[in-house]
Design a protein around this nucleic acid. Sequence first.
DNA 1: TCTGGGGTCCTAGGACCC
DNA 2: TCTGGGGTCCTAGGACCC
Length: 433
Amino acid sequence: MGSRLFVLADADSFYASCERVFHPQLMHRPIVVLSNNDGCVVSRSREAKQLGISNGLPWFKIRSQAEHDGVIARSSNYELYASLSARMMRLMASIMPDQEIYSIDECFLRGFQDPKRTRIACRFMRDTVLRGIGIPLTIATAPTRTLAKIVSHYTKHQGGGIGDWDLLKHQDPDVLDRIDVSEVWGVGRRLTRRLQGMSITTAGDLSRADPALIRHHFSVLLQRTVLELRGVPAIELDDFDAISGFRKQQIMCSRMFGHPITGLPDLSAAVSTYAQQAATRLRRQGSLTGMLTVFIATSPYSQGYQARSGSVILPDPADDPLTIARAAVSTLPHMIDPHARYVRAGVMLANLTSAASFQTFDGMDAKRDNGLGMVLDQANRKFGLQSVGIGWAGIKGKGRSKQETGAKWNMKRQRLSNRGTTRWDELCVVKAR
DNA sequence: TCTGGGGTCCTAGGACCC
DNA sequence: TCTGGGGTCCTAGGACCC
């Protein structure tokens, strides 16, 4: 008794809920948030779900019906979501111990020795985040992370709030047999199909499967899932760096363009921009990169789809924006098809090492940022992303609030809400009478 | 006309070594 | 006809997550 439970706190329809924080008039209205370029639906409020709108639908296909139904659509506003997420996470970490941030809208925490105290803390945490940030949470407690995920799913289906595995199990001893195996954390589409072939169709079936057999037919990951469904903790999230948060092992910056582009100059500008953004994230986590990959692709939905990629091994690990941007752009002439209409490009940084522990040998030195990167980072923090950068003269100033480049490859974001927590000129205005 | 953007981990198989 | 047996390291690809 008294073993500490896993607590999973997960925001309800996070992006859609964020849109409501500074626009309370959106409460109780159907909202969808669209992916970059206003492409697909990525988040729906409960009201939008009730209208039968599912995730991943292309907006242009459902737009007329949705607007007819009174659905409000927003471009995704990651700046706002990231800022609200950080506030929410800090608040939760102050209430319960051992937070592991799992994604922008969910984290695991550990309960207290006394289950009663854990229950009280969960309730307090939910009220505090709702009042202090304006985001509704679903909170689930269970002896393993996998069961906490299941409780969370189940609780959200019931309308959200707080759920507990022991209570659920007590009310409905066969609850796992009522949950499709595809809903289990770690079981995706492919595994679902293969498991069904072995007559494993529910979470209950999977929990009763022989772990050794599962290991043999699948992998150690799924074996751990079986144990977790039985209440035995087997999954660790241990790459958490207490000092700098998550230290990524790979950094990718990639975008679909607002319009297709052709030719080296435009493509170079886009790739240079993404390389600099990736380098900023690299410096933020205090890493150096040893290898960089650039990829470009035409539309997979049109004839003659082509995707190419090229890599550069850097002679010395680097975090300086000039080296990284230059290396990224240098891959393009070898890859580019001068007639192709590209719709997407990206830059990936790999072979990351810690800048702090990088050892220099004679004749081998890291291409460390000589101060330029730091200045760029500071300027961009102060004046907004992409205010200043290397080599993109002439593409500035046509975007909203002069904060985006005016280039045609820039994302389409026609329904962007205000970034009220990160931009002075987009602060929420309150009038008192 | 119009279909996202990140990440992680594991496994299999090849290269190479003794 | 015969053509060892391991170990390690690396990479590509597959699977999953949100």
